[in-house]
Write a protein that binds this DNA or RNA. Structure first.
Length: 511
RNA sequence: GGCCCCAUCGUCUAGCGGUUAGGACAUCGGCCUCUCACGCCGGUAACGCGAGUUCGAUUCUCGCUGGGGUCACCA
């Protein structure tokens, strides 16, 4: 159901030749795809935030489940805060998560450009339309004047809320002064919309003020850019975090002023910090790339995120296709939730652990970079394939998996000092020697035979299993914790197993 | 403070008038065992409060309380 979309190489900005759109607002005749058009519109002022990823996911799921179109738009109208590095980081994280976009940076599409910084003329044109129709006006008040007025009011009445006094509402043109464009907000009545998640929402207009839609530098403000782009790009449903529900009335007002129909709206409950505040990096890792580095898988991340506000009975873990098949707005919750790293870790582990959800070959490919980070590269794929089943249930992340696999690929294994001093003692030396000699000759060299033979050997020497097993474990793995002894030995093979035991016996003898 | 929104275990949630209020994480016991895990069994733990509506409210309505969001030439 999910369609992998090859991403075209090329310039980061703009569209590949041939995909360049006509004037904004037009749709290429050969482009139409049925179904809803949704978008994710991050602001490139940092990494991809985990909450943003959740928003992107819900949009993506809706597009994919309906055979619609997922548009990625970069809201970089604030030049101060935007950076190309951030754009790269966001695109990279989106791809890693498998949230592929049908239109947007690097893939083009029929309603670009997809960077707001390249659409300035269009916003200006839209603002002029509003000025001509009387829905907006030029305001020559400077930021300093307004700030001063704000401060004065605050001094007189600390509780009062400053609202733009309408100074320039009916002022005649003063061509040589810098200006912002303000929307002429209604002062009576109410603005209403129906949210797919929250239902009807109504806000009285008397709390509305003449909000700025174009800055003095000519760049649009969020509400204008958002409305114009969503309209021009043919967006049929806007899904975003609930922190945006408050300026939705302003956007509705803009749609009405333009004479455009309002797209469907769906606001998502917020992901709050464990303490119930707005989630920020003070509380937890909030960057998608952090989880990638920690050895979480894309589906591990997505599974945690999707249950945040959406559910399907008691099911906890889903495949990508299941999510696409099952997702619906009816199942989206209204109440905010708190981010829980422990639960996140468990969901990620659950996803990683089950071969049904993470096939062995995928797992091997995913863990390789982490082995590489440990200096284990290249590794023998055949051995990796045999080693993997022994550690899967022991590794909660790919980082842990790489650690758990380490001694299979490092010869001799790294010897933990505490393990050495505790287990490789002079008393243990003869036992290690005996086990080595037995293993050198035992036939066949397989797990059941080895298990049985070892038990017999221990008994014959009048010892207890636990006293011999640990030295052997340290000999084979360098550690006191590992998969069952002979599962390790079977992966290592006879030669390597015997070598490690003899070497350990040697170390043990010298104390 | 104005406006908007929300309300089931500590957390994520199931529930859509009648249930011993279910699952998962976390937590606490126990089992399994060559270590570590995995797994399994069991325990503690929730409908914020008050009015209605109803034969009957966790579920519907209102109020209260609590929590969150938002009030920029950020998005």
């Amino acid at each position: 159901m999910t369609r992998p979309r090859p991403v075209r190489p090329g310039r980061l900005r703009g569209n590949p030749p041939g995909l360049r759109a006509g004037p904004p607002g037009s749709v290429l005749p050969d482009a139409p795809m049925p179904g809803p058009r949704v978008r994710f519109a991050p602001s490139p002022s940092g990494y991809l935030h985990i909450g943003g990823a959740r928003t992107a996911l819900f949009n993506w799921l809706w597009a994919r489940s309906q055979g619609g179109t997922f548009v990625l738009r970069i809201e970089d109208s604030d030049q101060e805060r935007s950076s190309l590095d951030s754009v790269r980081a966001i695109l990279d994280a989106m791809r890693w998560l498998g949230l592929d976009w049908d239109e947007g940076p690097e893939v083009g599409g029929g309603s670009g450009p997809y960077f707001q910084s390249e659409r300035k003329a269009r916003y200006r044109e839209a603002a002029d339309t509003l000025i001509r129709s009387g829905h907006a006006f030029r305001c020559y008040c400077t930021k300093d004047e307004l700030d001063r007025a704000r401060a004065d009011l605050k001094a007189r009445d600390p509780k009062a809320q400053f609202v733009y006094p309408g100074t320039c509402r009916d002022r005649q043109g003063e061509p040589d002064l810098p200006f912002v464009v303000r929307f002429r907000a209604p002062r009576s009545g109410a603005t209403e919309f129906v949210d797919k998640v929250f239902g009807p929402v109504s806000t009285p207009n008397d709390v509305q003020q003449d909000f700025v839609i174009v800055r003095s530098d000519g760049f649009p403000l969020y509400n204008l850019g958002c409305v114009v782009d969503d309209h021009d790009m043919g967006i049929t449903l806007v899904a975003r975090g609930r922190d945006h529900i408050g300026n939705t009335p302003q956007q509705v007002l803009l749609y009405q002023a333009f004479g455009w129909s309002v797209p469907e709206l769906a606001h998502l409950p917020m992901m709050l910090s464990p303490k119930g505040e707005k989630l920020s990096k003070r509380h937890a890792s909030v960057s998608v790339s952090d989880y990638r580095q920690r050895g979480y898988t894309p589906m591990g991340v997505l599974n945690y995120l999707v249950r945040f506000g959406w559910s399907h009975g008691d099911q906890e873990i889903f495949t990508r296709d299941e999510l696409v098949r099952l997702f619906s707005w009816e199942r989206v919750n209204k109440s905010d939730g708190k981010f829980d790293e422990k639960k996140f870790a468990d969901v990620a582990f659950e996803q990683l652990k089950q071969p049904r959800l993470m096939p062995d070959d995928e797992y091997r490919a995913a863990v390789r970079p982490f082995l590489g980070e440990r200096g284990l590269d290249p590794v023998d794929d055949e051995r990796l394939a045999r080693a993997l089943p022994t550690i899967r249930e022991r590794a909660h992340t790919l980082v842990e998996a790489a650690h758990a696999l380490d001694y299979y690929f490092r010869d001799p294994p790294e010897l933990d000092e505490a393990a050495r001093s505790k287990c490789l003692t002079p008393q243990a030396a003869p036992h290690l020697q005996a086990v080595a000699e037995w293993l050198a000759a035992v036939e066949p060299f397989d797990v059941p035979t080895l298990d049985a033979g070892f038990a017999a050997l221990v008994k014959q020497r009048g010892l207890e299993m636990k006293h011999v097993a640990q030295p052997v474990r340290v000999a084979l793995t360098g550690r006191t914790a590992s998969p069952p002894l002979f599962e390790v030995a079977a992966v290592l093979g006879r030669q390597s197993t015997v070598d490690r035991l003899l070497r350990a016996a040697e170390i043990a003898r010298s104390g």
